[in-house]
Nucleic acid binder design. Structure first.
Length: 194
DNA sequence: AACAGCCACAACCGCCTTAGT
DNA sequence: GACTAAGGCGGTTGTGGCTGT
């Protein structure tokens, strides 16, 4: 594919922080036309922004039901465990945290959790009670996910169900109880049929 | 009060994937 | 199947605010 200029800030596009007026225009336009065809939306809204920039702004800040800041201990613990499970798959991790965006989780990881994890690895002997609990939960997770010889991840639970956000269980942390219960270790005979 | 350094977060960039033709 | 445009994602950077000196 030929190189493509799909970035913002070229061809005289607006860049940088969004103003409240821009937010308002974008939200209004999305209300009218829906959150799709971002390039067309960017033109229709009259904003001198690229489609990508509009999409990012909507998904991360303007979308309804977005939670901002105040990541709870429960959410933090979940992020830690999901990151251990999935790696830097921020969109997947965000999908299991209702109201959180991949960008927010990524930022939170890079500015808070990354350091915490590094400190833990440097001082594994100084585990707190909570950390020990977390480790037990990770052990449960690790039983469900194994890396095969070729380096691919073998998942012993239903991935489609795990990442199916349409069910009502995605509200709150109900789904978590199902998959991550402390004492729940999936029976290999049962899970292999999933 | 002024400055420097650090931190947190919003936004951009570039690559990859997907959809349309 | 090949090509192109758009969407999606993760990595990275820029900058404003906070804190320490």
């Amino acid at each position: 594919m030929a190189p493509r200029n799909d970035g913002a800030g070229k061809r005289g596009m607006n860049r940088g922080a969004w103003t409240s007026e821009e937010d308002r225009k974008l939200a209004q336009c999305i209300q009218t036309h829906g959150a799709k065809k971002w390039k067309a939306l960017a033109l229709k809204s009259g904003l001198n922004r690229c489609g990508k920039s509009c999409r990012l702004r909507w998904l991360n800040y303007l979308r309804p039901n977005i939670k901002r800041g105040n990541i709870s201990d429960e959410e933090e613990d979940l992020i830690l465990r999901l990151h251990k499970l999935l790696g830097n798959r921020w969109s997947l991790i965000a999908g299991r945290l209702p109201g959180r965006t991949d960008n927010e989780i990524k930022n939170y990881w890079n500015s808070h959790l990354c350091k915490k994890v590094n400190q833990k690895e440097e001082k594994p002997e100084s585990s707190t009670t909570q950390e020990i609990i977390g480790q037990n939960e990770n052990a449960t997770l690790e039983k469900e996910v194994a890396v095969n010889e070729s380096g691919n991840i073998d998942v012993n639970f239903d991935v489609d169900e795990f990442f199916n956000f349409s069910s009502e269980e995605t509200n709150g942390f109900d789904w978590l109880n199902k998959y991550l219960e402390l004492d729940h270790i999936p029976d290999p005979e049962t899970t292999k049929n999933l």
